[in-house]
Design a protein around this nucleic acid. Structure first.
Length: 491
RNA sequence: CGGGGUGUAGCGCAGCCUGGUAGCGUGCGUCGUUCGGGACGACGAGGUCGUCGGUUCAAAUCCGGUCACCCCGACCA
């Protein structure tokens, strides 16, 4: 066994790291905190991008591209925004290198200092709103519904493949509207798009809700989030959508003439998901044998492994396989035929299990005689010998079953790992011994949330949209509360 | 930035305490036998032991400096 994973029960975090590397998704690069996303991992990201991009366009958005660099002065224009990002910005100060006069390689040319430093974007609100100022004069120019696919840099202290890297890939939508109602509707629409994507494609159940003031995006009036629960009982913020009010319009003086002839500031939203979704996908479904991918996002949904003793057998099998491949593709199933002669079937079985391919078809001499194939599903590891007749319909149904099954499993897990508590002692007990989402009453103040965070590291993941109204008292302060919020330890 | 740890073959590690021929697993190459759950045998290629300096007849090993990376904390999508 060349590629054994650390079991989850032994060390969940190690399991995750092992899995990312051994399933060939990504690896650490020569640059501190930055990862190389390998072809197999990138293929999954491309699948996610394709679906999200389609969903954005269906809701009326267009893609555009803004600069990687942001003049430093732009950042100071929105006070809470700079406050939130200042500590993690990479800064470009020079534009030229030169040979070291002391002969020790290459140094930064001290004469090539920039007049104004450039920030490598940690997010693009500032550069985009400075641009929108030029695009908007009248209500007729609104709304602007733009998305960009980009990389951003946040100089984090500690990084983990996909979950938190110094540079990461994401999309950021930035919209401008004539009314606050419209901007809020957009913010809500996009958090719903994210939730639908997570649940329908990633098979990842999420809870939609609002962030508390402490956890809100720097510069937003309101942050909506989708929160997912990982197998170790920790929460992962998987996507956010921010209602910006007129904050950035005021900071960058973006005004429009309304229908009534008044000059008003524009209302905004921004929303994003990142390669962190890869981390969520990996952790949500995978097991000690490796990755488990939802069929809708797998780079290939079916792998076919031939079993043979000699060239003639392989030729006979390959002929059958070709017809199977054609049939599968005809119903839109993606297939890889692995006839690599350098690896044995056993090796291939283990390898594709590790890589999370949803369905494996093995075909050997026995099958040729019987007109059958062996079909194995990754989620349950069950194997079944089925007829080659109508194989495409069987596999199509199986892929649907797998997609549903892993989603249902995740829902059941979340249900088991969601615990209502009424006292702070109970809260600490559950947090320590069980983890997961904890539903508790909170008095609504930042102070209380901060105290709980300082004492337990748990934060309010969100105030759920579907919060049940319920009179209660804050577990920490005893003050009145009108409903439970979700606490958890988080990534 | 505080605490801990590690740099030796592509990868994972042993050797260091007690200085004296550079070692194991895996991976890689060739050949043969294998092939329905990570095959086996034979032969072979591959390392100025992170780096700079010191001690010594002799340094992977002892001493000092330095660099890099990893883990735990504070920060975070």
């Amino acid at each position: 066994m060349a590629k054994e994973l650390t079991p989850r029960s032994e060390n969940y975090s190690q399991w995750y790291n092992d899995l990312v590397v051994k399933a060939d998704l990504a690896e650490n690069s020569a640059v501190r905190g930055c990862m190389v996303i390998k072809p197999y991992g990138y293929a999954i990201w491309e699948k996610m991008q394709a679906e999200l991009d389609r969903m954005f366009k269906e809701t009326g958005h267009s893609n555009a591209y803004f600069p990687l660099f942001i003049p430093k002065s732009f950042f100071s224009k929105e006070a809470s925004h700079v406050e939130g990002f200042a500590k993690e910005c990479a800064v470009v100060t020079h534009y030229r290198l030169m040979n070291d006069p002391n002969g020790k390689g290459i140094i930064v040319d001290p004469d090539a200092k920039l007049e104004e430093e450039l920030i490598v974007r940690p997010t693009s609100e500032t550069i985009i709103w400075s641009t929108y100022k030029n695009w908007i004069q009248s209500y007729r120019d609104l709304p602007i519904l733009v998305n960009q696919w980009a990389n951003v840099v946040r100089w984090e202290m500690r990084t983990r493949l996909f979950l938190r890297t110094t540079e990461f890939l994401w999309q950021e939508g930035h919209t401008a509207h004539a009314t606050s109602q419209e901007a809020i509707a957009e913010t809500e629409q996009m958090v719903n798009v994210y939730a639908n994507f997570a649940e329908q494609f990633m098979a990842l159940p999420v809870i939609k809700g609002s962030k508390s003031a402490n956890e809100r995006f720097a510069g937003a009036l309101e942050t909506y989030t989708i929160e997912a629960l990982m197998q170790d009982g920790k929460a992962l913020q998987s996507g956010t959508s921010h209602y910006l009010g007129q904050n950035f319009a005021k900071a960058f003086d973006v005004k429009f003439a309304s229908k009534e002839g008044n000059v008003e500031f524009v209302w905004g939203s921004s929303w994003g998901v990142s390669t962190r979704l890869m981390g969520a996908l990996i952790m949500a479904h995978s097991d000690d044998n490796g990755l488990v991918l939802p069929p809708k996002l797998a780079p290939f949904q079916v792998v076919i492994v031939p079993i043979y003793k000699n060239e003639e057998q392989l030729a006979a099998i390959s002929e059958k396989v070709n017809s199977i491949v054609t049939k599968l593709r005809s119903v839109g199933i993606s297939v890889k035929y692995d006839n690599n002669d350098n690896k044995k079937p056993g090796w291939k079985f283990a390898e594709y299990e590790l890589k999370g391919v949803p369905v494996r078809i093995a075909i050997g001499p026995r099958d040729l005689e019987n007109g059958t194939v062996e079909v194995a599903r990754r989620d349950t590891l069950e194997k079944q010998v089925v007829s080659m007749e109508n194989i495409e319909l069987y596999v199509q149904q199986l892929l649907n079953d797998i997609q549903d099954n892993i989603f249902n499993k995740a829902i059941i897990f979340r249900k088991e790992m969601t615990t209502p508590v009424d006292t702070y002692d109970e809260f600490k007990e559950v947090l320590q011994n069980k983890g997961g989402f904890i539903l508790a009453h909170w008095d609504g103040t930042s102070e209380t949330e901060q105290m709980i965070k300082d004492e337990t590291k748990a934060t309010i993941r969100c105030i759920p949209f579907d919060q049940v109204p319920e009179e209660g008292t804050c577990m920490y302060s005893g003050k009145p509360s009108k409903g439970r919020v979700i606490f958890a330890l988080s990534y």
